[in-house]
C-alpha cells in the first residue's frame, strides 16, 4: 500500500477497481519458489495452463518458459502438474 491512500469522496462506489490488479505485486506472499530445469523441460506448457496467477510466461524468441516472480505466489501447482519433474520448489 502506498502512503497516498484516497478518501471516500475520491474513490468509485461499490468497490469498483480503479487500478489494474497488476499493481499488486503478490510475489511477496511466496515461501517456496518454483525453479525450472530447462534440461528436463519438454515445453509442453502444462504449467502455463495450470498456473492460477498467469505467472508463467512463454518466451517465444528464446523458446522457453519463464517465471514472473513479481506475481508467482509459490503455490506449487506447476511443479505438481509437470510430467517431466522439471520444476523444483525451493525455499526462498
Amino acid at each position: 500500500m502506498t502512503s497516498k491512500q484516497k478518501g471516500w469522496k475520491e474513490i468509485p462506489i461499490a468497490g469498483v477497481c480503479w487500478t489494474p490488479t497488476t499493481e499488486y505485486l503478490t510475489g511477496d506472499w511466496r515461501t517456496f519458489k518454483p525453479v525450472p530445469d530447462l534440461q528436463k523441460c519438454n515445453k509442453c506448457l502444462l504449467c502455463y495452463v495450470y498456473c492460477p496467477d498467469g505467472a508463467i510466461e512463454w518466451k517465444r524468441e528464446a523458446e522457453k518458459i519463464e517465471f514472473n516472480y513479481n506475481y508467482c505466489k509459490g503455490c506449487g501447482i506447476c511443479a505438481n502438474e509437470c510430467r517431466q519433474e522439471a520444476i523444483k520448489m525451493v525455499r526462498e
Binding site: M1, Q5, K6, G7, W8, I11, I13, A14, G15, V16, C17
Partner: peptide
Amino acid sequence: PVTMGPLDLYDYYFEH
C-alpha cells in the same frame, strides 16, 4: 469492463 466489490481490506473497506 469493470470489477465490482472484489476485495477491500483495512485500507479501503471503511471508505466504502
